[in-house]
Design a protein around this nucleic acid. Structure first.
Lengths: 189, 189
DNA sequence: TGTTCCATGTAATAAGTTACATGATTTA
DNA sequence: TAAATCATGTAACTTATTACATGGAACA
């Protein structure tokens, strides 16, 4: 169960479920996602299990929120997740499963369209990652290697994200090229 | 629901649940996985839904197996999955979530150990992908661009797999180096 | 005053994992 | 004959998604 551990990681400082969702969309979406309808019940369960504590926060602005923070037990649980070593072999990449079976479209032109659409997604994604990096770099002189630990490790994941998404764009381009040349040998009816 | 569609992709030719599991471990494990205890009930349900047909196969060797094959309805379902365009933004990569929170180990040496272990995993994985490619290349003169469609598209995913796993190895190396230099500035007590 | 955003949840369903159970066949 | 592999499944549980429901606050 990883979402539990991700929550524990995020809840060093108090956050509401709504906050956590936004953080997901900002900094973790390259490798994990979660819906609010999963987050809220999970937070409740984790509090029941003693991993979190919560309190209502009726601050001056906005509706009342419930903010959670991890307990000592929660911190231990997080550490043992990390100490267990890397979780490998559980990756799940839907679009690659689709490419694997793309022959079933039965039409090279449609396959090219698919790859083109994928390429566009990846190019947009790359832009947003590059923008995020640029902003970070210009707002914090410690970027990247003198960031405090709690920002340095996220920065490592941003770097890999950039590399991977770039690789995806290039790969899409080459795939399109290769499908095109094949079609030339045996053009669609 | 993607596993359903992956099954449909694989079941152009008849296969048993056991077969499908082996195919997963051979050619799809870079981006999807499934347990037998998920596969068997799913096949039954898909047959009930008219996406597959099955028959018992008491061949000369081995225990009796039940082999499934997709129906016309199954083929349509598969095509509409592909025609819907690429599924993006649902990726899930557990080890990156861990790296993101690696500061919580509270010890650079442990973080380096973690990254080292990850690097080893990736390097092994790379070896097995390279071996798979090499074998394929030497056993089929059509490799890679003159393969028939049903092998060409899987080959595209193998290529990306190779690129990504290589990128991971390099990234791990650089991360280890960067964590080391940081430690030099502020060495662990 | 209507739209968007903030904020929290429940219900129903689907998808996936871990543990358990069974028995035949092949190979060392 | 013991161990590994082939082969299929069920049960219990955990995890995740989709749809629904509610209402206050900010903003244009």
């Amino acid at each position: 169960m990883s979402l539990k551990h991700i929550m524990l990681g995020m809840l060093r400082e108090p956050h509401s479920g709504y906050d956590l969702k936004k953080q997901f969309d900002r900094s973790l979406r390259s490798f994990w996602r979660a819906e609010l309808s999963q987050i809220y019940p999970l937070l409740q369960k984790m509090e029941k299990d003693g991993l979190l504590s919560s309190k209502a926060d009726s601050s001056d602005i906005g509706p009342t929120r419930r903010v959670y923070k991890r307990s000592a037990k929660g911190r231990d649980e997080l550490q043992s997740w990390l100490a267990d070593g890397p979780t490998v072999g559980t990756e799940r990449i839907g679009y690659l499963a689709q490419v694997f079976f793309l022959a079933n479209l039965g039409d090279d032109a449609k396959a090219i369209e698919f790859m083109q659409e994928l390429r566009d997604h990846m190019a947009n994604w790359l832009q947003s990652l590059e923008a995020a990096e640029q902003e970070w770099r210009s707002n914090d002189p410690r970027y990247p290697d003198k960031l405090p630990d709690e920002d340095f490790y996220p920065q490592l994941t941003l770097e890999l994200g950039l590399m991977k998404v770039k690789a995806n764009v290039d790969w899409c381009d080459r795939c399109i090229e290769r499908i095109r040349s094949r079609s030339t040998y045996a053009p669609a009816s």
